[in-house]
């Protein structure tokens, strides 16, 4: 065996797939050829270092598995949410001061949100932080605008309702529209003494009423009759009359009010 033939066997030797007879031939050549001996030694040493050097591997963080499982869980929940109808309506209310009716209205709206849609809203915030940032900026802009307008107008209890998007689900669509109608009815009574109905988003409340004039649904009626009033604290704050409390709670009605899920 000459050096060229021996060199052709190096890879097979290193891979451990060389036949016994050729291994012997290579070994014999290795004994008598210093050059091939050194080449093979270098190759073997490189492999040895790569295979056995235990000092090179960094370690993962200890909580890697937990974090990963949490991500998998989150991704799965997102998938589940995507397979169900998204909340079709989001109603944002801006309150200045308050009354028991306003508080009840908002409480009812909150209850509706809890009964099925707060999860979806939370996920929007978790998975799309830009959405949160954008919403914050928009909310700040609305508050500033509201301040300016309110300086010259009598203060309405509720400034506006925002109609965000339509639902592909007709049942959900109907229920949500009913809620908006009820909200609007209450708003109208509060806005009787107001000099104007403020614009929030692209529509005024009255325009919205024109578009959404649909009857009540049982689910929303029940929710609106909720007896407790969790806003007593904010009412007290509001009654001082010099502080705008923003309640940008996202409210959406699940289809028929089913699958109540208290989070």
């Amino acid at each position: 065996m000459n050096c060229e033939q021996a060199a052709n066997l190096f890879d097979a030797h290193l891979d451990g797939v060389l036949s016994q007879s050729l291994e012997t031939e290579l070994a014999a050549h290795r004994v008598k050829c210093a050059m091939c001996r050194q080449d093979l030694a270098l190759l073997e040493v490189a492999g040895h270092v790569i295979a056995s050097d235990g000092a090179v591997d960094d370690q993962l963080e200890e909580d890697f598995t937990d974090r990963l499982l949490a991500c998998i869980d989150g991704a799965r929940q997102q998938k589940d949410t995507a397979s169900h109808p998204e909340p079709s309506f989001t109603i944002n209310t801006l309150r200045l001061g308050g009354s028991s009716r306003t508080a009840r209205l908002i409480h009812a709206a909150r209850q509706l949100r809890v009964s099925g849609r707060i999860r979806g809203v939370q996920q929007v915030f978790l998975s799309k932080p830009w959405w949160f940032g954008g919403s914050s900026v928009a909310a700040a802009a609305v508050v500033v605008l509201a301040f300016k307008l309110l300086l010259s107008a009598p203060q309405p209890a509720v400034l506006g309702v925002k109609f965000e998007k339509e639902s592909p689900d007709p049942e959900l669509d109907l229920a949500a529209r009913s809620l908006v109608t009820q909200v609007e009815t209450t708003l109208s009574s509060h806005a009787e003494n107001a000099s104007s109905v403020l614009h929030i988003g692209e529509m005024t409340i009255l325009q919205m009423l024109d578009q959404l004039g649909i009857g009540e649904s049982e689910a929303t009626s029940k929710a609106l009759q909720a007896p407790s009033d969790p806003f007593s604290e904010s009412e007290g704050r509001g009654s001082e009359g010099d502080e705008i409390a923003e309640d940008a709670g996202s409210v959406a009605e699940d289809a028929g009010g089913e699958d109540v899920e208290d989070l």
Binding site: A12, L14, G16, S52
Partner: peptide, 23 residues
């Protein structure tokens, strides 16, 4: 590596019997 007179399996699928340079 693919020279014909090496006595190697053609597809390389055979498990290595023992690798030179490995512990």
């Amino acid at each position: 590596l693919r020279s014909n007179n090496t006595g190697l399996p053609e597809d390389g699928a055979a498990p290595p019997k023992g690798r030179a340079g490995l512990p």
